[in-house]
Design a protein around this nucleic acid. Structure first.
Lengths: 215, 215
DNA sequence: CTGGAATGTTCATGCTGGCAACATCGGGCA
DNA sequence: TGCCCGATGTTGCCAGCATGAACATTCCAG
């Protein structure tokens, strides 16, 4: 994530990317609130207003970081699932995959708290923090969610979860790992020793798997 | 939550409380990031620096708001549980109570998004946003969690969840409702029509109850 | 009734986001 | 080849916020 930076020319050449890298670094270090336009510009060695040539403002910079962070999260999940050995029984394999994805999810959150928080930060276009204006742009799917939902689909042998509740089941599973991640990061489960933390993670996973099966 | 404000004396008389009220209002309107010292002071009709006589700074003001919000959350849960009719079967009653508490939890989050977000906002004492300095002060229990955990205890007939995993089970249940709340507020489950939202909530609750039973 | 402690105010510093006007560079077109 | 225009950066500037120091006012206890 280091800027490239060639010679010292007036024109940077790749300022947008450099700013994104700096902003991602900032998010990694201190979460979304640390993503500050001026600081990003400073790190790249450019005047603050230069950034406005490439971003509408801090909001768009943060949104870009968020997209990057969501990607990184999904990648981590896929890596975790990829490391998981297959199983002869496809049902078992599906179950293992789901668990591995969830472990990857929580693992990413714990390893990259700043990025994880940035991945799900709220962006208020107007800054008025009101009830969120109706936006026409349909938000792009979040791959992490898609992964979980697909894993649940794969799990759906024996008809559970029933098709009718399957989307809701995906949301439920996501809720569990998302909530767990946040409680581990900022909540009262922070400072839990690794051992206990893993126990909580596994317990939650068990709840998700068996609770989902019963739907 | 309206300030009291008597005559126009030099000394306010109850500035600390007035500031807290204003800050809680701010959080209610726009979440923790909206809690701004100057604005609170402005609403109370006092100079910004006056607030420093009663709070160490914005951080402490926000912490106070957070405490208030956590209280309000727990109160809402208890009210929800109180409305739940009892059952002859104590096990069934316990299950209902747990579900009612969870519904109260999510309901509070949906009804008071700003306050809910404030209840779980992160406070970096130093502002350096680092790996969170070691603090000796043991954080006070969060009543919402205690309620959930106790409800799970009550649920623990038939030996499930087994005593060994029971604390972890509490964390798992909390994770689910906490994550669900946040996904409903800021995440992709925002804008879900009420009908579908209730479906997701009930599905998640079902997952928690049956998933917890299987632990 | 009077002086110290509480409480509020004004002024100043340094940070942030954001806008307007100006400077510089580089590539396409005559 | 040479020149002009648009893209890219820069300097200045304003407003809002957190925070501290020095100063003013008021209340209360001795």
């Amino acid at each position: 994530m280091a800027a490239i930076s060639g010679g010292k020319t007036y024109h940077h050449g790749d300022l947008r990317n450099a700013l994104i890298c700096a902003a991602v670094d900032l998010a990694t270090e201190g979460g979304p609130e640390r993503v500050v336009l001026r600081e990003a510009a400073r790190r790249v060695g450019v005047s603050p207003t230069a950034a406005y040539r490439h971003f509408d403002g801090r909001g768009e910079l943060l949104r870009t970081v968020r997209t990057h962070a969501r990607c990184a999260l999904a990648d981590a999940m896929e890596r975790a699932a990829g490391r998981e050995p297959g199983a002869d029984d496809p049902a078992l394999a599906a179950e293992r995959r789901l668990a591995a994805l969830c472990r990857g999810y929580v693992g990413f959150a714990v390893d990259q708290p700043g990025l994880y928080r940035a991945a799900f930060c709220v962006l208020r276009p107007d800054g008025t923090a009101g009830p969120m204006p109706e936006r026409q742009v349909p938000e792009p799917e979040i791959r992490a969610f898609t992964l979980l939902r697909d894993a649940l689909e794969g799990l759906a042998r024996a008809g559970t979860p029933r098709p009718a509740v399957r989307p809701a089941a995906g949301a439920a599973a996501w809720s569990a790992v998302h909530g767990l991640s946040l409680l581990l990061l900022d909540g009262p489960l922070r400072r839990l020793p690794v051992q206990r933390r893993n126990a909580v993670v596994e317990t939650t996973l068990a709840m998700v798997v068996s609770g989902t099966r019963a739907l």
